[in-house]
Structure formats: C-alpha cells, structure tokens
Amino acid sequence: MSEADLIERIADTLEKRAALSYRLWTIEMIATYLNRNADVVRQRIVSLPTFPKAIRLPAGDGRVGKPQWKAQEVIEWVESHKEGAGTRRG
C-alpha cells in the first residue's frame, strides 16, 4: 500500500467517524447494533439510568417525535462495558 493510499484510508475513516458523531439512532438501529431484539432494547437497555439520554425532536402540533439517541454516545456507552474497562456504569 502506498503512502497516498494510506493517507486516503485514514482520511476516509476520520470522515466516517465525524459523520457518525452527528447521526441519530432509533430503537431499531440500536437493537441492530447491539444484536438484540428491539423490545429488549426498549424495555431493558434504554431505560438504564446510565444509558445516554434520548432526543425527542418536535413533530408539530405540540407533539414530540419518537426518541432517538446520538450514535456516538451509544457506542461510547457500549465501549464502557468492555471487560477490564474499569468501572462499569450500568
């Protein structure tokens, strides 16, 4: 692999990570990421006090939309549960 190819791969990786930090995930997307059933995620995971807080965007007429979570925050929460990662937060 040439130096230019390596630089391009690094740039692509950084770009993807930056995009992920702005992405919002639904329950179904979190379930896919966690390899769990959406009902399990809804009932047992997102309700944990240490799980990132949901974002509810306005849906109009005074209503709010379904909860969504910042993808990067969910990933960081998951990573905090690695074996040997020190303190686990829930």
Rank of each mutant, 00 (worst) to 15 (best):
residue 76 E to N: 07
residue 57 L to N: 15
residue 23 R to P: 12
residue 41 V to Y: 14
residue 4 A to L: 14
residue 79 E to L: 01
residue 89 R to C: 04
residue 88 R to S: 06
residue 59 A to S: 12
residue 18 A to H: 04
residue 41 V to P: 12
residue 46 V to G: 12
residue 85 A to L: 03
residue 87 T to Q: 07
residue 34 L to E: 06
residue 69 W to T: 10
residue 71 A to V: 08
residue 55 I to V: 11
residue 72 Q to C: 03
residue 9 R to A: 13
residue 32 T to E: 15
residue 81 H to L: 09
residue 58 P to D: 05
residue 38 A to S: 09
residue 71 A to W: 03
residue 11 A to L: 10
residue 48 L to S: 10
residue 38 A to L: 01
residue 75 I to W: 09
residue 17 R to I: 02
residue 67 P to D: 00
residue 48 L to P: 05
residue 83 E to I: 04
residue 38 A to V: 03
residue 63 R to V: 08
residue 6 L to N: 03
residue 10 I to N: 13
residue 57 L to T: 14
residue 53 K to P: 02
residue 87 T to G: 12
residue 7 I to W: 00
residue 10 I to G: 10
residue 8 E to Q: 14
residue 57 L to S: 10
residue 79 E to A: 10
residue 2 S to W: 02
residue 62 G to C: 05
residue 86 G to K: 02
residue 37 N to I: 09
residue 43 Q to W: 04
residue 6 L to W: 05
residue 25 W to S: 04
residue 44 R to Y: 13
residue 82 K to T: 01
residue 11 A to Y: 04
residue 17 R to E: 12
residue 75 I to Q: 08
residue 61 D to I: 09
residue 35 N to D: 15
residue 5 D to S: 11
residue 73 E to M: 09
residue 38 A to T: 11
residue 65 G to S: 07
residue 1 M to K: 07
residue 9 R to T: 10
residue 17 R to M: 07
residue 11 A to E: 14
residue 31 A to S: 07
residue 46 V to H: 06
residue 75 I to P: 01
residue 53 K to W: 08
residue 72 Q to V: 02
residue 52 P to E: 09
residue 50 T to Y: 00
residue 24 L to T: 07
residue 73 E to A: 12
residue 5 D to H: 15
residue 76 E to H: 11
residue 56 R to I: 06
residue 84 G to Y: 12
residue 6 L to V: 09
residue 37 N to V: 07
residue 29 M to V: 03
residue 64 V to A: 03
residue 50 T to C: 01
residue 64 V to Q: 14
residue 49 P to W: 09
residue 29 M to I: 06
residue 31 A to N: 05
residue 28 E to F: 03
residue 44 R to S: 11
residue 86 G to Y: 06
residue 55 I to Y: 03
residue 11 A to I: 09
residue 60 G to F: 05
residue 73 E to I: 00
residue 1 M to R: 08
residue 44 R to L: 11
residue 2 S to A: 14
residue 44 R to V: 02
residue 61 D to P: 00
residue 50 T to V: 00
residue 77 W to A: 08
residue 10 I to Y: 14
residue 54 A to V: 00
residue 46 V to Q: 09
residue 65 G to C: 14
residue 36 R to W: 07
residue 75 I to D: 10
residue 18 A to R: 09
residue 2 S to T: 15
residue 29 M to L: 11
residue 6 L to H: 10
residue 28 E to A: 08
residue 2 S to I: 00
residue 50 T to K: 06
residue 82 K to I: 04
residue 55 I to A: 06
residue 16 K to C: 01
residue 47 S to G: 11
residue 52 P to Y: 08
residue 14 L to E: 10
residue 11 A to W: 02
residue 29 M to N: 06
residue 43 Q to E: 07
residue 60 G to D: 12
residue 86 G to D: 04
residue 74 V to W: 02
residue 39 D to H: 09
residue 75 I to K: 02
residue 78 V to N: 12
residue 80 S to V: 03
residue 77 W to P: 03
residue 26 T to E: 06
